[in-house]
Amino acid sequence: MVRQLGQTTLGIVRDTGDFTLFCGRAFMSLSKTRRLPRRILRAVYEQGAVCLPVIAIVGVFTGLVLGLQGYHVLSRFGSEGLLGTLVSLSLVREMAPVLAALMLVGQAGSAFAAELGIQRNTEQIAALETMGVNSLGYLVAPRLIAALLVFPAQAALFVVLGLWGGSLSGSVLLGVDSGVYWSAVERAVEFRDLRECFLKAASFGVLTTAICAYMGFHADRNTSSAGARAVSASTTRAVVFSSITVLIADYVISSFFI
């Protein structure tokens, strides 16, 4: 048992070190990548534009639910006027960065891990290396930069649509005065809240994109399966590890801001 524990610990340390080196090499390779702006633009489109409908739908419905639940909780204490405060702070500090990141992992992250896994399986990554193209610089680095832009932008969109959803359920459906709702929002949200929101979103973006890239890039390291199964296994691992990482990182970052 002690031996197994030791082996597991060593495995975790080795994998963490390998992952850190992978991220470092990916960022270092930025300087060697040609036509980087074009690659970044493409990555922004694939990560951002494609995921807009999902973010919009989840954002609106999260706001609607927050408005609905918040109203019924606050009305017990006769504090319906604080609905805007509850919805806005919940969204800005927690819900928007976390849920937007989870949605992006589910849609863009999984697709990215699977794409890299297939590229590894079909020797496209090996082909890049034989051509003298830095595969990390060409395939991974633009995605990491794009994640720094896309995740905060998607979190901001989530906040806006969530606030609108909260107003829809709180003011239009349940009768809270619209002016009271929006003035509570304006009073509640401070610069530090926005800073926390964007810092979380950017951190989640880089972490989850790096995890998805790492899993897909090393799909061939899976010793228990090969071919399509290895790609499927690496994609599943990418989504699971990314989602867990978002929640752990959320706690760590939140603890610094409280």
Partner: peptide, 22 residues
Amino acid sequence: QGNALFDSLTALENVALPLEQT
């Protein structure tokens, strides 16, 4: 053996890739 062509790039883009990047 399997050609290792980039399926998201056109024939021309595939051929241009090594020139663009190196």
